Amino acid sequence: MEIDAAVINEEGGAFEVETLEIDDPRPNEVLVRVAGVGVCHTDLTVRDQNYPAPLPIVLGHEGSGVVEDVGENVTGVEPGDRVVMSFDYDDDCRNCNDGHPAYCEDFFAYNFGGVRPEDGTTPLSRDGEAVHGRFFGQSSFGTYAIATERNVVPVNEYEDVPLELLGPLGCGIQTGAGAVINVLDPEAGSSIAVFGAGSVGLSAVMAANVEGCTDIIAVDLKDSRREKALELGATAAIDPNNVDDVVETIREQTDGGVQYALETTGVPDVAEQAVDVLTQRGTTGIVGAPPLGSEASYDINDLLINGREIVGIVEGDAQPTQFIPTLIDLYQQGEFPFDELVTYYDFADIEQAVADSEAGETIKPILRMDHDEA
């Protein structure tokens, strides 16, 4: 079948919408008619090859849509089901068996390899030549995507929620919210500082509000994002360019430091600040992903004497089949209004969506597919 898909043909290149061929689903695979797909910072990281993946490739990993067809061994979904696509995993290693698929021992192969890990093939081609797909088990920057039974989450019970809105729950929204709810797990009445108020950081702010934190401090360079953080539950918002010392400012506002911090920017210097703002026995979660090989420096004795902890977090340590419905329930209850982060774009305008995201003008772009033109 022919589809329209946005292809990255060279390092740092444009997303070029082209006509490709897509395979029929194999026995454990699912063909999804994409309704919408979020644009995530990780897509741009791979475009620029800061995280290497083979080219040419179709990216996109926050897709939602309707199941069009399933392989013969698939039993969990059927054609017509509404689904959100999330990250992929082998479902067989120790961490997957322990309920932590975000730490799958073969996570990179299943999400960044650009091929089916089982046999090295790709479901996408162009004039008979292979185009790498299966990015995060989906490559959803296209009108259709091949996923697996493992990484599709049925959402049939939420028919009153626009399907295209739900895609970012598969990665960015899940990452920020899960970092707070699943990993940091702050006590009601505790304090937290969130560094970066993009879609991940703002999801963390909303989650901290859900958890009952009473001091929620957002740090961001952009006025509009700090304002949005305050609207979504932050009790204070700091512009790093407007204070002499971010760390000292937060310490002053929280009587010595916060109990929790979350770093979402991927900037090593900011990651250091996210540890320095902790009070004794505080915990910092690191979510932001800089280029491979990036390092941050910490005073070992400062960690040791104060009992501080640093924890790396992937995908909010979520089990998507359980956590995504939880987030939708919170949204319907008015406690997690992630729709306020979203700006919609036509799929053909993907380059504009990317530009607006990189400029900080849009928090979470979602590309809508027009299947009448597909």
Rank of each mutant, 00 (worst) to 15 (best):
G312K: 05
A237Y: 11
F135M: 13
R82Y: 03
N97V: 03
E29K: 02
A359E: 12
T143Q: 07
V131I: 15
A208Y: 04
V183N: 07
L304M: 14
P186D: 00
D255T: 09
A218P: 09
L341N: 03
E16P: 01
N209K: 15
V205P: 07
T283P: 01
V37S: 14
A348T: 08
N73W: 05
I8T: 09
S191G: 09
G113L: 10
E11Y: 01
N97M: 11
G76C: 05
E2R: 14
T362D: 02
V183D: 04
G282P: 08
E351M: 02
G76A: 11
L55R: 05
G201Y: 10
A53I: 14
P54Q: 10
L169T: 11
V277Y: 01
H61W: 08
A274T: 13
G172I: 13
D69R: 15
G196C: 10
I192G: 05
Y110F: 15
R33T: 14
Y260N: 12
T121P: 02
D370G: 03
S139R: 05
V115I: 12
A261M: 03
V267S: 01
G266H: 02
S203G: 07
P337N: 05
C213P: 02
L303R: 12
P25H: 07
G172T: 12
E72L: 00
T283G: 01
N306G: 02
I363F: 10
V152W: 04
G196Q: 10
I250W: 06
F195H: 14
A237K: 13
I217C: 14
P365F: 12
I8Y: 00
R47P: 09
D349A: 10
G113I: 12
A359Q: 13
A130R: 14
Y298P: 00
T284F: 04
R281Y: 13
G36K: 08
L330P: 06
E295M: 10
P337S: 07
V152M: 02
A234S: 09
R150Q: 15
E118I: 01
R308H: 11
T321C: 00
T214R: 13
V205E: 03
D349F: 00
I286C: 00
S294R: 04
Q174T: 13
T148H: 10
V275A: 09
V270I: 15
D90N: 05
Y345W: 08
T42H: 06
T254L: 06
A188D: 12
T122K: 08
T19Y: 05
G212N: 06
G266K: 04
V67T: 11
D349Q: 04
D317M: 01
N111E: 06
N156D: 15
R281E: 11
A130H: 02
